[in-house]
Amino acid sequence: MTSDNPQFAAYAPAPGERQPPVAAVVAGAVEEDVPVLAALQARARGGSAGEWAQRIRRALDAERSLVVTARVAGEVVGYANVAFLSAHAPVGYYLTGVTVDPVWRRRGLGRLLTEWRMEWVWGRGEPVWCFVSAENRASLDLHRELGFERVASGPSFQGVAFACGEGWLLRADPPSQGRRRKSSM
């Protein structure tokens, strides 16, 4: 289940292959962050910064969504989204992406951004949902470590199709409502 997809972090499950953790500040994004976030997204995932800026602005303006940034020494090095999706079942709050500048990957920023968003959703008394490509082993490991459990597998979720043909729908319940343990994904 390895992938050469440049959108995913290189799979490095052994702790010795990771960089030392870095201290970062996570906070809600604001309009002034959009150009930096769009440039980061274009560098990490391809496409034009202009197109990414439009998408990021839509997420910032959406009523039940959140865009958060991770900053190291004041520099934006990553960001992530959460959105309330209701187009398809199951309806709820979804982690809809995390992007970390490639030079800052494997430093705990993806985990920090994910935990921050989970707490934000749980503060609303809701479970956290996400869908992940079956090829994205780094993301699957992270979500398993954070207590997500696989609910379903399929070619698409919430209208998003997976290039590899399979994705996993994951769920983590608030600590007061469910399990906070490692799952067996």
Rank of each mutant, 00 (worst) to 15 (best):
T2K: 07
D4G: 15
N5T: 07
P6R: 12
P6F: 06
P6I: 07
F8W: 09
F8N: 01
A9R: 09
A10M: 12
Y11K: 04
P15T: 13
P15G: 14
E17S: 15
E17P: 00
R18Q: 15
R18M: 10
P21F: 11
P21G: 05
V25E: 15
A27Y: 02
A27R: 15
A27H: 11
A29C: 07
E31R: 13
E32M: 03
E32Y: 03
D33E: 06
V34D: 03
P35V: 01
A38L: 03
A39Q: 02
Q41C: 06
R45Q: 12
R45K: 10
R45C: 07
R45G: 00
G46W: 00
G46L: 05
G47L: 09
S48R: 10
S48F: 03
A49Y: 07
G50F: 03
G50C: 02
G50V: 04
G50W: 02
A53L: 01
R55W: 00
R55F: 02
I56C: 03
A59H: 04
A59Q: 10
A62N: 08
E63Y: 07
L66F: 08
L66E: 14
V67Y: 00
V67K: 01
T69W: 04
T69R: 13
V72D: 11
V72L: 12
V72H: 14
V72R: 13
G74Q: 13
G78F: 04
G78A: 13
Y79N: 01
A83S: 14
F84I: 01
L85E: 10
L85H: 01
H88P: 02
A89V: 09
G92D: 14
Y93P: 04
Y93G: 05
Y93C: 08
Y94T: 06
T96I: 09
G97T: 12
G97H: 13
V98P: 00
V100H: 03
D101W: 02
R106F: 06
R106L: 14
R107L: 04
R107M: 08
G108Y: 05
G108L: 07
R111H: 07
R111A: 13
T114F: 01
W116V: 08
W116M: 06
R117K: 11
R117P: 05
M118S: 11
W120D: 05
V121T: 01
R124K: 15
R124F: 07
E126C: 12
E126G: 04
E126Y: 06
V132P: 01
S133A: 14
A138H: 13
L140W: 05
D141G: 02
D141V: 01
H143E: 11
R144M: 09
R144F: 04
E145K: 13
E145C: 04
L146Y: 06
L146P: 04
G147E: 09
F148C: 05
F148E: 04
F148W: 09
E149Y: 09
E149G: 14
R150V: 15
S153I: 04
G154V: 10
F157N: 05
G159A: 12
A161P: 06
A163Y: 06
G165A: 10
G167W: 00
A172Q: 12
A172W: 08
S176T: 10
R179L: 08
R180W: 12
R181L: 13
K182L: 14
